[in-house]
């Protein structure tokens, strides 16, 4: 089984590609295609990646590090909350065929994701295997199942 930190990092890369494909479609005025890629991205990150992190990975890290109010997971949870609103606004910009607003939101979201992902990959993921009772096997399987569903 691939280690949990690698699975999560690869999922970041897969999701970044979906967002980029949506942006490229906006650039071609292919609004329906843009909406489909954005929805695939949103579903993957909100319903898959974030759910696994918030329900399993963050609590395991917090348990190991001594409490729910850990500054790292507090910041990451807040990042998820902010991102969910941005994703809705991006979907609205596509529905309105408003490339200028979409591009502004994309720039902000990509900056947030870059910082957020780097923080997770350097400060959270490397410690997960030891924090999780099964070394992250169940969480990794959930992410891989989600990826398989997206490509089927």
């Amino acid at each position: 089984m691939t280690p949990i930190d690698q699975i999560m990092q690869q999922d970041h890369e897969r999701l970044d590609q979906l967002l980029e494909q949506s942006a490229q479609a906006v650039g071609k005025d292919a609004w329906q295609e843009a909406a489909q890629f954005l929805e695939a991205f949103r579903h993957g990150i909100v319903d898959g990646h974030m759910v696994v992190e918030e329900s399993t990975l963050f609590p395991a890290f917090e348990l190991q590090e001594g409490g729910e109010d850990h500054p790292l997971t507090a910041l990451l949870r807040k990042g998820h909350q902010d991102l969910r609103v941005f994703f809705e606004e991006m979907a609205e910009a596509i529905a309105d065929q408003d490339a200028e607003t979409f591009d502004d939101l994309l720039s902000t979201v990509q900056t947030i994701l870059k910082q957020h992902d780097a923080k997770e990959e350097t400060e959270l993921y490397p410690y997960l295997a030891s924090a999780l009772a099964d070394q992250g096997e169940a969480a990794g399987k959930r992410i891989l199942d989600f990826e398989a569903e997206a490509t089927s």
């Binding site: 609103v85 720039s107 902000t108």
Partner: peptide, 18 residues
């Protein structure tokens, strides 16, 4: 309510103002 009236970016951070 809850939507962003502005977005702000620094070299190390980006975020919205809801």
């Amino acid at each position: 309510a809850g939507r962003h009236v502005a977005t702000l970016e620094s070299g190390k951070w980006a975020g919205g103002v809801p």
